[in-house]
Computed example of a mutant assay.
Amino acid sequence: MKDAPLHLALIGDYNPDVIAHQAIPVALQQAAQALKLSVKVQWLDTDAITATASLHGFDGFWCVPASPYRDTEGALRAIRFAREQRRPFLGTCGGFQHAVLEYARNVLAWADAEHGELVPGAKRAVITPLSCALVEADDTVRLEPYTRIAQAYGSVDIHEGYRCRYGINPEFAHALLEGEMIASGHDAAGDLRAVELLNHPFFVATLFQPERAALKGITPPLAIALLTACQEASA
Protein backbone atom coordinates (compact mmCIF):
# COMPACT_ATOMS: atom_id res chain seq x y z
CA MET A 1 0.00 0.00 0.00
CA LYS A 2 1.05 3.59 -0.66
CA ASP A 3 2.49 5.21 2.49
CA ALA A 4 0.51 8.45 2.23
CA PRO A 5 -3.18 7.61 1.86
CA LEU A 6 -5.43 9.29 -0.63
CA HIS A 7 -8.22 11.31 0.97
CA LEU A 8 -11.64 11.02 -0.67
CA ALA A 9 -14.64 13.16 0.25
CA LEU A 10 -18.15 11.79 -0.19
CA ILE A 11 -20.51 14.71 -0.81
CA GLY A 12 -23.92 13.83 0.59
CA ASP A 13 -25.94 13.20 3.73
CA TYR A 14 -25.16 9.69 4.95
CA ASN A 15 -28.10 7.34 5.39
CA PRO A 16 -27.28 3.72 6.28
CA ASP A 17 -30.51 2.56 4.64
CA VAL A 18 -29.46 3.84 1.19
CA ILE A 19 -27.93 1.04 -0.86
CA ALA A 20 -25.56 3.41 -2.67
CA HIS A 21 -24.29 4.73 0.67
CA GLN A 22 -23.56 1.17 1.76
CA ALA A 23 -21.83 0.42 -1.54
CA ILE A 24 -19.60 3.43 -2.17
CA PRO A 25 -17.12 2.94 0.71
CA VAL A 26 -16.91 -0.75 -0.25
CA ALA A 27 -16.30 0.19 -3.89
CA LEU A 28 -13.49 2.54 -2.94
CA GLN A 29 -11.81 0.01 -0.68
CA GLN A 30 -12.04 -2.65 -3.40
CA ALA A 31 -10.51 -0.21 -5.88
CA ALA A 32 -7.79 0.75 -3.41
CA GLN A 33 -6.87 -2.90 -2.91
CA ALA A 34 -6.78 -3.47 -6.68
CA LEU A 35 -4.43 -0.50 -7.08
CA LYS A 36 -2.44 -1.29 -3.92
CA LEU A 37 -3.28 2.09 -2.45
CA SER A 38 -4.35 3.30 0.97
CA VAL A 39 -7.53 5.38 0.96
CA LYS A 40 -9.29 7.34 3.68
CA VAL A 41 -12.94 8.13 3.04
CA GLN A 42 -14.82 10.95 4.76
CA TRP A 43 -18.49 11.83 4.46
CA LEU A 44 -19.23 15.54 4.05
CA ASP A 45 -22.75 16.42 5.13
CA THR A 46 -24.02 19.04 2.71
CA ASP A 47 -25.16 21.39 5.47
CA ALA A 48 -21.61 21.36 6.86
CA ILE A 49 -19.98 22.52 3.59
CA THR A 50 -20.18 26.22 4.35
CA ALA A 51 -16.79 27.23 2.93
CA THR A 52 -14.15 25.82 0.61
CA ALA A 53 -11.32 26.00 3.15
CA SER A 54 -12.24 22.56 4.48
CA LEU A 55 -12.10 21.03 0.99
CA HIS A 56 -8.44 21.61 0.16
CA GLY A 57 -7.25 18.51 1.99
CA PHE A 58 -9.08 16.09 -0.28
CA ASP A 59 -7.53 14.42 -3.31
CA GLY A 60 -10.89 13.66 -4.91
CA PHE A 61 -14.64 13.89 -4.52
CA TRP A 62 -17.63 11.62 -5.08
CA CYS A 63 -21.06 13.27 -5.02
CA VAL A 64 -23.37 10.48 -3.95
CA PRO A 65 -27.02 9.50 -4.57
CA ALA A 66 -30.02 10.15 -2.31
CA SER A 67 -30.88 13.75 -3.07
CA PRO A 68 -32.50 16.13 -2.37
CA TYR A 69 -29.65 16.95 -0.06
CA ARG A 70 -30.13 18.80 3.20
CA ASP A 71 -28.28 21.78 1.71
CA THR A 72 -28.19 22.07 -2.08
CA GLU A 73 -25.81 25.03 -1.94
CA GLY A 74 -23.34 23.07 0.16
CA ALA A 75 -23.29 20.26 -2.40
CA LEU A 76 -22.88 22.74 -5.26
CA ARG A 77 -20.06 24.49 -3.41
CA ALA A 78 -18.08 21.24 -3.19
CA ILE A 79 -18.76 20.33 -6.82
CA ARG A 80 -17.65 23.76 -7.97
CA PHE A 81 -14.46 23.42 -5.92
CA ALA A 82 -13.66 20.08 -7.56
CA ARG A 83 -14.32 21.50 -11.01
CA GLU A 84 -12.40 24.75 -10.60
CA GLN A 85 -9.51 23.26 -8.63
CA ARG A 86 -9.27 20.37 -11.08
CA ARG A 87 -9.69 17.71 -8.42
CA PRO A 88 -10.91 14.31 -9.66
CA PHE A 89 -14.69 14.10 -9.34
CA LEU A 90 -17.31 11.42 -9.76
CA GLY A 91 -21.03 12.06 -9.44
CA THR A 92 -23.61 9.28 -9.47
CA CYS A 93 -27.40 9.63 -9.66
CA GLY A 94 -28.06 12.75 -7.51
CA GLY A 95 -24.41 13.62 -8.00
CA PHE A 96 -24.98 13.63 -11.76
CA GLN A 97 -27.97 15.93 -11.38
CA HIS A 98 -26.14 18.41 -9.18
CA ALA A 99 -23.00 18.39 -11.32
CA VAL A 100 -25.19 19.49 -14.24
CA LEU A 101 -26.91 22.12 -12.08
CA GLU A 102 -23.58 23.52 -10.86
CA TYR A 103 -22.28 23.71 -14.42
CA ALA A 104 -25.42 25.47 -15.61
CA ARG A 105 -25.22 28.10 -12.89
CA ASN A 106 -21.51 28.76 -12.69
CA VAL A 107 -20.16 28.00 -16.16
CA LEU A 108 -23.10 28.91 -18.38
CA ALA A 109 -24.09 31.70 -15.94
CA TRP A 110 -27.71 30.58 -15.81
CA ALA A 111 -28.43 32.13 -12.43
CA ASP A 112 -32.04 30.91 -12.61
CA ALA A 113 -31.12 27.25 -13.28
CA GLU A 114 -32.95 24.96 -10.88
CA HIS A 115 -33.52 21.31 -10.01
CA GLY A 116 -37.10 20.40 -10.84
CA GLU A 117 -37.48 18.27 -7.73
CA LEU A 118 -36.78 21.32 -5.55
CA VAL A 119 -38.48 23.99 -7.67
CA PRO A 120 -41.03 22.18 -9.87
CA GLY A 121 -42.35 25.35 -11.50
CA ALA A 122 -38.97 26.84 -12.39
CA LYS A 123 -38.73 28.31 -15.90
CA ARG A 124 -35.19 26.97 -16.28
CA ALA A 125 -35.40 23.57 -14.57
CA VAL A 126 -32.34 21.89 -16.07
CA ILE A 127 -33.17 18.71 -14.14
CA THR A 128 -36.69 17.32 -14.57
CA PRO A 129 -38.52 14.01 -14.04
CA LEU A 130 -37.50 11.23 -16.39
CA SER A 131 -40.14 10.13 -18.87
CA CYS A 132 -39.82 6.69 -17.26
CA ALA A 133 -38.51 6.52 -13.69
CA LEU A 134 -35.52 4.21 -13.27
CA VAL A 135 -36.17 2.79 -9.81
CA GLU A 136 -34.39 -0.51 -9.18
CA ALA A 137 -33.97 -0.82 -12.96
CA ASP A 138 -31.15 -2.17 -15.10
CA ASP A 139 -30.30 -1.15 -18.64
CA THR A 140 -27.58 -1.12 -21.24
CA VAL A 141 -25.54 2.03 -21.83
CA ARG A 142 -23.58 2.85 -24.97
CA LEU A 143 -20.50 4.93 -24.18
CA GLU A 144 -18.87 7.37 -26.54
CA PRO A 145 -15.48 6.08 -27.68
CA TYR A 146 -12.36 7.83 -26.40
CA THR A 147 -14.15 9.34 -23.38
CA ARG A 148 -12.78 8.88 -19.87
CA ILE A 149 -15.71 6.69 -18.93
CA ALA A 150 -15.20 4.41 -21.92
CA GLN A 151 -11.51 4.19 -21.04
CA ALA A 152 -12.45 3.25 -17.47
CA TYR A 153 -14.71 0.41 -18.58
CA GLY A 154 -12.54 -0.69 -21.47
CA SER A 155 -15.71 -1.05 -23.52
CA VAL A 156 -18.39 1.06 -25.16
CA ASP A 157 -21.24 -1.28 -24.18
CA ILE A 158 -22.01 -1.67 -20.47
CA HIS A 159 -24.92 -2.77 -18.28
CA GLU A 160 -25.70 -0.85 -15.10
CA GLY A 161 -28.38 -0.37 -12.44
CA TYR A 162 -30.41 2.69 -11.46
CA ARG A 163 -32.51 4.14 -8.70
CA CYS A 164 -33.38 7.49 -10.19
CA ARG A 165 -36.35 9.63 -11.13
CA TYR A 166 -34.70 12.79 -12.51
CA GLY A 167 -32.36 13.60 -15.39
CA ILE A 168 -31.38 16.38 -17.79
CA ASN A 169 -34.30 18.36 -19.19
CA PRO A 170 -34.27 17.68 -22.96
CA GLU A 171 -35.31 21.30 -23.52
CA PHE A 172 -31.90 22.50 -22.31
CA ALA A 173 -29.74 19.54 -23.27
CA HIS A 174 -28.27 21.04 -26.43
CA ALA A 175 -27.20 24.27 -24.74
CA LEU A 176 -25.82 22.38 -21.73
CA LEU A 177 -23.75 20.05 -23.89
CA GLU A 178 -22.33 22.32 -26.57
CA GLY A 179 -19.32 23.45 -24.53
CA GLU A 180 -16.96 21.71 -22.11
CA MET A 181 -19.64 19.38 -20.73
CA ILE A 182 -20.15 16.56 -23.20
CA ALA A 183 -22.47 13.57 -23.46
CA SER A 184 -20.49 10.40 -22.84
CA GLY A 185 -23.19 7.73 -22.51
CA HIS A 186 -26.75 7.01 -23.68
CA ASP A 187 -29.16 4.20 -22.90
CA ALA A 188 -30.77 1.86 -25.42
CA ALA A 189 -33.48 4.44 -26.13
CA GLY A 190 -30.89 7.15 -26.81
CA ASP A 191 -31.50 9.03 -23.54
CA LEU A 192 -28.52 10.71 -21.87
CA ARG A 193 -27.05 8.71 -19.00
CA ALA A 194 -23.49 10.04 -18.55
CA VAL A 195 -21.57 13.28 -19.00
CA GLU A 196 -18.01 14.45 -18.45
CA LEU A 197 -15.96 17.61 -18.73
CA LEU A 198 -13.34 18.27 -21.34
CA ASN A 199 -10.10 19.90 -20.17
CA HIS A 200 -10.39 18.43 -16.68
CA PRO A 201 -8.22 15.59 -15.31
CA PHE A 202 -11.29 13.55 -14.33
CA PHE A 203 -14.83 14.89 -14.01
CA VAL A 204 -17.41 12.19 -14.77
CA ALA A 205 -21.07 11.94 -13.80
CA THR A 206 -23.51 9.10 -14.38
CA LEU A 207 -27.23 8.80 -13.84
CA PHE A 208 -26.72 5.11 -13.10
CA GLN A 209 -25.14 3.80 -9.90
CA PRO A 210 -21.98 1.83 -10.75
CA GLU A 211 -21.15 1.52 -7.05
CA ARG A 212 -23.86 -1.14 -6.60
CA ALA A 213 -21.61 -3.74 -8.23
CA ALA A 214 -19.34 -3.58 -5.18
CA LEU A 215 -21.98 -5.27 -3.03
CA LYS A 216 -21.79 -8.23 -5.42
CA GLY A 217 -18.03 -8.44 -5.05
CA ILE A 218 -17.31 -6.66 -8.35
CA THR A 219 -14.96 -3.68 -8.25
CA PRO A 220 -16.61 -0.80 -10.17
CA PRO A 221 -14.38 0.42 -13.00
CA LEU A 222 -15.24 4.04 -12.23
CA ALA A 223 -14.03 3.65 -8.64
CA ILE A 224 -10.69 2.44 -9.99
CA ALA A 225 -10.62 5.31 -12.50
CA LEU A 226 -11.37 7.88 -9.81
CA LEU A 227 -8.60 6.65 -7.52
CA THR A 228 -6.16 6.39 -10.43
CA ALA A 229 -6.89 10.02 -11.32
CA CYS A 230 -6.36 11.01 -7.66
CA GLN A 231 -3.08 9.13 -7.54
CA GLU A 232 -1.85 10.81 -10.73
CA ALA A 233 -2.90 14.25 -9.51
CA SER A 234 -1.15 13.83 -6.17
CA ALA A 235 2.08 12.40 -7.63
Rank of each mutant, 00 (worst) to 15 (best):
A53D: 15
C230R: 06
A32Q: 05
I127C: 01
T228N: 11
E232C: 05
P120M: 08
V107P: 00
H186F: 11
N169R: 04
I24C: 00
F208L: 07
V135Y: 11
F61T: 07
S54N: 12
L101D: 13
G154T: 07
A194Q: 02
D138C: 00
A53H: 14
V119E: 04
G60C: 13
F172W: 01
A99S: 15
Q231W: 12
G60D: 12
H21T: 10
A104D: 10
G91E: 11
T50K: 15
A4G: 00
R124Q: 07
D157I: 04
V100A: 10
P68G: 09
V26S: 02
L192H: 09
A9K: 09
Y153A: 03
L198F: 08
M1L: 01
G167D: 02
A223L: 04
V141P: 08
P170H: 03
P25K: 10
W110F: 12
G57D: 12
T128Q: 07
G185D: 02
R163W: 04
F58G: 12
D45L: 12
L227M: 02
F61Q: 13
C63S: 14
V18G: 02
E114T: 01
K40L: 13
F96C: 12
E196C: 05
W110E: 06
A125F: 07
S184Y: 04
A111R: 11
F89L: 15
L177C: 09
A75I: 06
T46S: 14
A125M: 02
C164V: 02
C164P: 04
Y162T: 01
A183K: 03
H98Q: 15
A78D: 04
A133V: 13
T206L: 03
P65A: 14
V26F: 00
S184A: 02
A213S: 09
F96G: 13
H98F: 11
L76P: 09
P5Q: 12
P220W: 04
K36P: 00
L8I: 15
G167L: 07
P221G: 04
E114H: 09
S131I: 11
V141I: 15
I11Q: 05
S38F: 01
H56G: 02
L143S: 08
Q97I: 10
E232A: 15
M1G: 14
A99L: 14
E144V: 15
L222P: 10
L10T: 08
A173P: 00
N199P: 00
E171A: 09
R80S: 14
C132G: 11
E180H: 00
R163K: 05
A104R: 11
L227C: 01
L134N: 06
G161L: 06
H115S: 04
G116I: 04
S234N: 14
D3R: 10
V119Y: 02
G74C: 09
Y166C: 03
I158C: 03
D187Q: 07
W110H: 13
V100I: 15
V195K: 10
L37A: 13
T46Q: 06
A32K: 06
G95Q: 13
R165G: 13
I158T: 04
S234I: 08
L76M: 15
T206R: 08
I11E: 06
D191C: 02
F81M: 11
G57V: 12
G154S: 06
T206S: 12
A113I: 09
A4T: 11
A34K: 14
